[in-house]
Amino acid sequence: MNVKTLIYSENTELSLQLLGKAIQLSGAGVSAVAVTHDQADTLVGSGAAKVYLVKDRSLDALRAGILDVVARESPDLVMVGSTKRGRELAPRVAAALNAGYSGDCFDAQQGEGGFAVKRLAYGGSSIASTIIRGKPAVISVSPRSFQKPEAQGKQGEIIELNTSTPAPRVKVLETRPKKTSDAGLESAKIIVSAGRGFKKREDLKLLEELASELGAKMGCSRPVSADLGWMDQWVGISGKKVAPRLYVACGISGTIQHAAGIRDSQIIVGVNSDEAAGIHELSDYSIVGDIYAVLPALTRALRERAK
């Protein structure tokens, strides 16, 4: 049985990743919604059979456009890229269609009686395997979940949509570009992080010295920030999700909450005096030792190495 898919993301790179997956699921019969001529050309050139162009990027226009295309193509699966704009659009489309929806999926397969998707639950500590029944199933897909298709140079069709949309009911007064400093921990290459192993606030200077030697940003576990108020931002489920090249957890026990926040790190180092602490399981390299002895020694060793 060949499934029909409809894909959409305002982000062309992400729309190509969706297209790659859609071709895998549907073969040649993929429809897409695009927001620019360039994007429509790219999608057609990469294997989409029909690309519907909606030139108004407002939520209401895209909602109406996608519903229009769903009525024309009756897809089995609607895939929307999981950007913030995509994540507010997709459930709205699903509600209008009385359809099932799962957000931020990173895997999708045709399963028995529906689409089987995988996504995070419980603050990112767990993976929920989920089945969506009924037609269509609507999902949003996290970036980098799927591979782009090989460039095919095949010619599909571009159709300009003129779906009527009501006047916007929310007035945009101003858009302000983000300050880059907002990025902070999420974009840091190296992070050193403090846990309850630090007995006094003043002792954080051991972490500061290590951070300065490594050129690292500083983070902490939830209790150090939320309970003790020693630092602003914590790393974990309810705090920041980080993906540095190197993450050094100092005096952190390694709860599932913290684990979910550091999972995408390339290399994790744990320093904890408790041999049974969960952080050792979560680490690539770990030292069972007192942070009050290990951190100064590590800072000295790095300083020596730099010479």
Partner: peptide, 18 residues
């Protein structure tokens, strides 16, 4: 329409060199 049939913590693939 939507049913969660399995919830599991992801496997941690770390080197775990102590």
């Amino acid at each position: 329409r939507v049913e969660v049939y399995d919830v599991k913590a992801p496997e941690v693939k770390r080197k775990r060199v102590m």
